[in-house]
Simulated assay, not measured.
Amino acid sequence: MLRNNLKINGKNTLMKLRSSTPFFILFLLGMLIQSCSKTNYDYLLRPFNEIKQFYIVTSTGDTTKCLIQGDSITVFWNPDVAMPDKVSPRIVVDEKATVSPASGEAVSFTKNTTYTVTAENGDVKTYRLNPIVKKPLPSISNVSGNITWLSTTQLNIYGENFLVQADAANIGIYLQRVSDGFEFPLEVIKERTTNYSLIAKVPEFTESQGIGLHKLYMKIGDKPTKSVDIQVYAPDIYGAQITSSFVQDGQDIHAGDMLTINYAATDNQGGKVARFYSTNDVETVLLYISYEESVEIKQFTRTANSIQFKVPDEINKFVGKKVGQLRLFYKSAPPDQATFSSYRHTMYLTKPSNVVVK
């Protein structure tokens, strides 16, 4: 404020201050105190002695990843690049601090190498170098396809770094059923394993194995990789022996009539296949009038050996025509195979004889 007054009033104001001796002395003391405070602040010594950045440029031009934690400098070295005896790290510290050995100076690339950072105020902190060869983790990118029990014998599995951390003898492939966590191994063909692909055998089909979404993953030692999804489907219907008969064969049918299919499913594998083709597994009955005309039924009354359903009103548009075929579709059919042109998970009944819509 005084300085502003001086600038405004010029030399006359200064002369008036001098003529008033006590006031003038106070003015000079205030200026002196302000000057001394500014000087002490400007020359306060900095206490910063941390390493802010530490990195190494390899012979391939890549920059290594480093982790500074506490008094340790961990350097993660790529195993595909030969580890040198000496390195020349680039180091960043506070602008008023110093580091020894200096940034860019060649040092031994071992755990015996230490760095000392001295702050401007003399505080010292010591860091130790910790080189680690970081082996990349194996990963699965994709699989050759899904599994259909009794048909699929092996899976081709693709990814990378399969052999970086272990040889083929120590690699395990596992499938885990998502619905309940049930897990089982697949045998790896060791002599066909490379760093980027391997072949795993699908195990023998047992009663404990089911269908649905599974997680496939690799395990090396006790360390699992990230999984990929894979669908596991029921065995083809050809693995079961199904006997059936249409009770109303040879009769006229009408909308609202109750029709019955007598039905039984067995197999020569102790029921392992037939369990996917019981009456409870029938999802749709299709009444074919012609190749391009049909009526779909999804509501049933089921017993262990029969399926009963009501003829829908939709049948009325086919009055006077014959029912050419009856076909069953099952819940266990893969989505890409549960089509009218698929035969692997569907079944035709014996062709009806003279069944006319009335």
Rank of each mutant, 00 (worst) to 15 (best):
E183S: 12
L150M: 15
D180H: 06
P136K: 14
N195K: 10
P101N: 01
G70M: 10
N78F: 09
N146T: 12
L163A: 07
Q165G: 15
D123E: 07
V133Y: 11
Q69K: 14
F162M: 12
Y127R: 10
K96D: 05
A102V: 08
V117L: 04
S151F: 06
N195D: 15
V93S: 02
V164N: 13
P101G: 04
P79R: 10
A82Y: 02
V92K: 14
R177Y: 04
W149T: 08
L129C: 10
I73K: 05
N146C: 07
R192H: 03
L163D: 09
D94N: 13
G159P: 11
V93C: 01
V178E: 08
S139G: 06
I147A: 01
K86D: 05
I132D: 02
V143H: 03
N78C: 04
N161M: 09
T153V: 09
N156H: 10
S144C: 06
K125W: 02
K190M: 08
A166T: 13
Q69I: 06
R90D: 13
I73Y: 07
K96A: 10
G104R: 04
T153R: 11
A168G: 06
A106S: 15
P84G: 09
V87K: 11
P79W: 08
V143N: 08
N78S: 14
N142C: 10
D71Y: 02
E160Y: 10
N121D: 13
P84Q: 08
V81M: 04
I171T: 03
N78T: 08
Y174C: 00
K135G: 10
G181S: 11
K125H: 10
